[in-house]
Design a protein around this nucleic acid. Structure first.
Lengths: 223, 223, 223, 223
DNA sequence: TCGTAATCGAGACGGTACGTCGTGTCTTGAG
DNA sequence: CTCAAGACACGACGTACCGTCTCGATTACGA
């Protein structure tokens, strides 16, 4: 029973969040046995996005179905992710990563319009907005899912916007008496709400500009 | 508790004309055989709210569990509602109705702040914000659910706000070059987003005022 | 959670062998809820015998497959029997019950030949010999299965034979210096061995007579 | 341990001419690449016998478990045998070979008693009777397994007994009107049945003698 | 002294079955 | 006609083996 002696598995804390060695950048050391197939991984991830795009709701989504669609054994899924949530979160992250660079420098108004225009683009991209909607729909029913998405994706974007706003305040271009977090919400929430609560495509092109102008100059007519 | 007025619930369900006779005010004529027990109905509705308050997520909620909790048979539930969604929607409506009165007349700024303050109150009321969140979470996965909620609850509120804004434009207090629907979003979305995407209580008291002021006068400092 | 209070399941000893109320003669008292369908029961039992006759080995047999073949949900099987073994044993018993009456009275030789002839008939009956073989094949791997089969079916048959032999000894027709149990084996084992270890039909018609004659008079030629 | 004589294992496997080269006496010519480790082979065979002795039933036995116990890879097993059955049969043969010598010459009664006594010894030897039982339990579910065991082990033993009986008939010590095969069964089956269908140790020492005497002289008292 | 090639342990691969649970429908006897 | 109870077919859950395959590493042989 070879297994009984020097086990080797020292320190197996289950909360490490990566109990099954999540498929990230080639991680640890030796790698004994047959390595996991990237093709299988791709097939699984493709199956998830395909099913979601075909209108399958997150709740209706099942590991069984995903595996069937991917032409893969269920074990191949569970070997990589602990379940549907982990898998879904991975899909989301993988899709979000290679993205937003700006807003860089420039006049405040243009920078803000650029950031909101980019947010609008997400809403128009069916696949990405689907994922965002699913996540937002489970903010309270699966808080850890949203928490991790927020930490890795959302908060970075908000922070960039907050940075721009803070700089604007320093330069005297904005009033400084309102919480930055609230300012960010005032800018982004109108578009976000449309992404989450309306059908696709209800995001007029001029919306970013209108929001930013109202935000900066108000809606009271200047005489 | 069982709304006797002829509004709302009366004569709806247009697409399911022969569904189980939803529990509205004692329906039409005959009524043969044993009448439905109101106690059963109360027990079911109580069970739903109790479970939701206990933190059971909408997805985790099951008819089986509801019936068990209420101490009734599953059939007693399905006899009244077509399933979890219908039942849930019924609970929501029953809870929403006796509410919003304003904004009545008065100075534009105060009226808007009042409307947003009232929206904030919903977010602070645990039970009602829970329902809102659940519904918003299924906008796309169960569109008919959201559609009916929107028609009966949301759209009326938006319309009242839109009315106020339209009047403001007519009076020259607001610029008239932006779609009213967008204006409503700009006002309400920041608070709505906090309700949907954050933990309870992250709704500062001054938020309505800050939003309305920014909305009216902009955030660029006037010299 | 109704379930938590007065459980009612007093004295739930798991070894009673009928934990799930095995479908025997209409058992207990009230019978609340929808009664179990006899058609389902028949379908399950038919599926088992059919599969076995089609050559599916006992080990290859699975509840999943049985349910599929019977056109029935797995739960319908587990509701009645705790698993494959219980189900199989039930099939065996159901099939064995309505059978052997003899050996009655009469000359010792004829009675013995009759009993062995009847045993031979079992061997020739494909269905019944299949069950016997399967059971015998698991005497040691699933002792409880064999034990219960032996208690309810085999031992009664052996006892009848033993009774005849004992009477023969009392009447002076047989020597009384050998254990009755051994005598029973000497008579039945040759046929039994052929049933268990050979292909069908290798049971010559004259075998019972030859065995009984050798048993009574020996094989040494009488001068 | 690895039979070097040319009997039995040589040139068998007629139906699977290209199966993995069963480990017989160092086979034919070349042998390129790393040779198979005898240590691995020993470890596998040891694991099988150990597990069986520990009471693991044949069905519960799995290649996975065998490999784990032996501390080898599954492939190392499948490289040598096509599966559990082949492996098991190999273990059986390896164990059976160095055995039965008698019955040689001598008075018929003594020779028969000797043969049956030897059969009884097998039943008493835990390991060997286990194998016999397992094989007998799969006579019909895996006919090829039994066939090969019968051909290489059983039939030789039966043939030796048949030879003795035939000689007895020729010498006029036995009646010649019964099929020899049936005679062999009449003698051996009672003991065989006890081995297969009862617990260990239910094989009284006097059984062989009693059977042979009954067989020769019958049980009807001679006046 | 090298390549070559079959071996080694390890473990991933697509499958199938496990026994449990929730779905929405149905079917009892009692009220 | 309603009630509670619960059976019904269906399908997903996460785990365990199946027998096959694919890794890097090891180990002998023949060139």
């Amino acid at each position: 029973m070879k297994r009984a002696d020097g086990r080797g598995t020292a320190g197996e804390l289950p909360d490490a969040g990566e109990n099954p060695p999540l498929p990230s950048g080639k991680p640890s050391g030796k790698a004994r046995g047959r390595p996991r197939s990237e093709a299988v991984e791709r097939a699984i991830l493709d199956a998830v996005t395909r099913l979601l795009e075909e209108g399958v709701s997150y709740d209706a989504l099942s590991v069984e179905q995903i595996a069937r669609t991917a032409g893969v054994g269920k074990a191949a899924v569970y070997r990589r992710w602990s379940g549907k949530d982990e898998l879904f979160l991975y899909v989301v992250k993988e899709m979000e990563e290679p993205t937003y660079e700006g807003p860089g420098d420039g006049p405040l108004r243009e920078v803000l319009i650029g950031a909101l225009g980019w947010l609008r683009q997400i809403g128009l991209a069916k696949r990405r907005s689907t994922l965002l909607r699913v996540l937002a729909g489970h903010v309270h029913s699966r808080p850890e899912l949203w928490k991790r998405y927020h930490e890795t994706v959302i908060s970075a974007r908000r922070e960039r916007l907050a940075f721009v706003l803070r700089r604007g305040i320093e330069r005297g271009e904005l009033r400084g008496d309102i919480d930055i977090d609230v300012l960010v919400d005032m800018l982004t929430a109108p578009i976000l709400a449309r992404i989450l609560l309306r059908d696709w495509e209800e995001l007029p092109e001029e919306m970013p500009r209108q929001i930013v102008d109202a935000f900066l100059d108000g809606l009271r007519p200047r005489e």
